[in-house]
Simulated scan of single mutants.
Amino acid sequence: MRTKSRNLTLKDMAEHLCVSTATVSNAFNCPSQLSKELREHILAECRALGYLGPNAAARSLRTGRTGIIGVTLSNYLSYTFTDPVANQFLQGLAEVFESREYSLLVMPSRDPMKEAKGYESFVDGFIVYGPPQRQTLERLIHQHKSIITVDFDIDGYVSVNIDNYNSARECAVHALKNTVGDVAILGLRIVDSNYVCRIQQRELLRADSTITIQRLRGFLDAIEGAGMTMAAERIWHVPDNTHALGYQAAREALMCSPRPQLLLCMSDRIALAAMQAARHLDLKVPEDVRITGFDDIPESCTHHPSLTTVHQQSVGKGTIAAEIFLGQREEESVVVPTELVVRESCP
């Protein structure tokens, strides 16, 4: 058989190799289904004849599935690739989906590319990490495909979350036991502003729209439970989870009078930046100021002093979301447990 390469089909190759069309397809798409020798033989013959493999678009029309999962992020791609928590979550997703030979299509909701270029219609379903912009969410729901949400809820859909309120409250209760003096909170995306600022009388974001509002309420309830009051101007808003913005907020807080003796931070990145700000102001941690974080990223235990924080299973959240999507777990919402990790920054 020596037809022109542009006319070669899966059926042509199967007849030439004296195997089924499924066997040829598996050589390209499901290599684990064939022996190494048979797969290499099939691919070598296909290369020799100029056959490039089954057409993905045609296959998706036949089966209604593409083997591609859309992962919608609540932030910019450039930001997500530098955020250790997001990286760990994506790692958990990738490990499960790759083992089942699925591909991931990452779709940020805060980039210009979000303006519906047809990506949503091509994927088999969505893992939505963090609340996307409203119009993005509406487009995804309109596709009538499987949706698993992570770190937020949509009525009628399965979600994977942690208990942010109680995790933050437990951390604050521990930190307040041996704290004498003022407390400051370094929040994360708690008001609608692109700048580091104190919240003053600004309206907080809705509790069901952001995990950090739940953490803030956990902090505030622990402070109230300790018989202390918390003025709004002692709460800082950090618009993005970056070292530079965390450092700016921490430096402002530590230069206030009276200076806070405890900084409750809503992420490890902010907390680590706060430790650097304290060092630059000749303050010792924890002797002069105690600091807590949230997430337990790898740097938290290697930094000196090591960081007291809330450990959340970021990789595990990705693993669980992927397994639910693939039917390897019960299709029900999951609250992943957390753990308070006490280290040097706030013993």
Rank of each mutant, 00 (worst) to 15 (best):
I213T: 10
I213C: 12
I213R: 12
Q214D: 12
Q214S: 13
Q214M: 13
Q214Y: 04
Q214N: 13
Q214G: 05
R215N: 07
R215V: 09
R215F: 14
R215K: 14
R217P: 01
R217C: 15
R217A: 14
G218Q: 02
G218C: 08
G218V: 03
G218I: 02
G218F: 06
F219M: 07
F219Q: 00
L220Q: 15
D221V: 00
D221N: 14
A222I: 01
I223F: 07
I223E: 11
I223A: 10
I223G: 10
E224G: 08
E224H: 11
E224N: 10
G225C: 04
G225E: 09
G225M: 04
G225A: 05
G225T: 01
A226R: 01
A226N: 06
G227K: 09
M228E: 13
M228V: 07
T229H: 12
T229D: 13
M230Y: 03
A231H: 14
A231Y: 03
A232P: 06
A232L: 05
A232Y: 00
E233D: 15
E233P: 00
E233V: 01
R234V: 02
R234P: 06
I235L: 06
I235G: 03
I235Q: 04
W236S: 07
W236C: 03
H237I: 04
H237A: 11
V238P: 02
V238S: 07
P239E: 07
P239H: 06
P239I: 02
D240G: 02
N241G: 09
N241V: 04
T242A: 11
T242P: 09
T242S: 15
T242H: 10
H243P: 00
A244C: 12
A244Q: 15
L245V: 02
G246A: 09
G246R: 02
G246N: 04
G246Y: 03
Y247G: 06
Y247F: 15
Q248P: 01
Q248I: 10
Q248C: 11
A250C: 10
A250T: 00
R251F: 12
R251A: 12
R251M: 13
E252P: 03
A253S: 14
